[in-house]
Simulated scan of single mutants.
Amino acid sequence: MPRKSRYWFPGATYHVYARGNRKEDIFRDDHDRRKYLYYLNDTRHKLPFILHAYCLMSNHVHLLLQTEKVPTEQIFRLLHTRYAMYFNNRHELVGHVFQDRYNAILLDTPSAFIKLSRYIHFNPVEANLVESPEQYPWSSFSSIIASKNDPYISKERTLSFFTEAKLSPEKQYKNYVEQWNEQKEIKESIR
């Protein structure tokens, strides 16, 4: 029986995430992470989409992407098939790399978009890998808050939410993401 197609239309924006089979690592080292980003970029050139944010954790990946002319099913079939073949070959494994197929949640409001961007970039802090999102090298956070160019992402939509005249959009976004931790600490202290 064929799988049910996901709801899609050109310009749809999604939180896409995928986890390693049996929650195992899908990235064993930086070489694996670089290869995933290479395949992600190559896929984007073949099946265009806009990537707004990403975070590569050891056993899962988060992407905030906007489709153009092809649905996420085609994008991730190509991307994850290529990566799984590479991963199994490099590590002399067989079988599934990813648990089930990827998950894609349609983001239908500007609020959902910016909150998800914050969630993605704060993920390494939540996992106690780093103290600050900018310390984690395998996410798009540092590229968004700095003038550093990241060939994988488009930061214009993310920064367009921050229009306060006193601070740059990059500084406002940085504050927005980092305030999430402060808000969580305050909530935990009053419990």
Rank of each mutant, 00 (worst) to 15 (best):
K174M: 14
H15E: 01
E131D: 15
V97Y: 07
H60Q: 03
S147E: 10
T158Y: 04
T163H: 07
H91P: 05
F141S: 03
E92Q: 15
M57T: 04
K46C: 10
H60K: 05
K69Y: 12
I144G: 05
R3F: 05
W138Y: 08
L51A: 11
Y7K: 15
Q172I: 00
D100I: 06
I26A: 09
K184P: 08
S147Q: 14
N21W: 05
E164C: 09
S154N: 15
L116H: 11
Y86G: 05
E131H: 14
Y14R: 01
L63F: 10
T72C: 13
Q172D: 01
K187E: 15
K35T: 13
T13H: 00
L93G: 10
E178N: 14
Y173I: 08
Y86L: 08
H121M: 07
K148N: 09
E131W: 12
H45I: 10
L78T: 12
Y173M: 08
N88K: 02
A165Q: 10
K69C: 12
P10E: 03
N59E: 03
K155P: 03
S140L: 02
T109Q: 09
Y7N: 13
L93S: 11
F87T: 11
L116T: 15
K187Y: 13
I105V: 13
E156A: 07
H60M: 01
W180N: 14
A146I: 11
T67K: 04
P151T: 04
Y152L: 12
N149H: 13
L51R: 03
S160G: 01
N103A: 14
Y14P: 00
I50L: 08
D30M: 05
T163N: 11
R82S: 10
L37V: 01
H45F: 14
K4A: 11
I145H: 06
R157G: 12
G11Q: 00
D25L: 11
H96I: 10
Y83S: 05
P10N: 08
M1V: 10
E68A: 07
N149K: 13
G20S: 03
L64M: 07
L167W: 06
I144H: 04
R157A: 13
Y36M: 08
N88V: 00
V16D: 07
F141T: 04
R6C: 06
D25C: 15
D30Y: 02
G11V: 03
L37P: 07
V94R: 11
P137K: 04
S189L: 12
P48T: 07
I105C: 09
W8K: 01
K115R: 14
L159K: 04
I145G: 00
I153G: 06
H31F: 14
P169M: 06
H15A: 02
D108L: 13
F98S: 00
V177Q: 00
A53E: 09
R28Q: 15
T67V: 09
Q172Y: 02
L106C: 04
N103Q: 15
V94I: 09
F113Y: 04
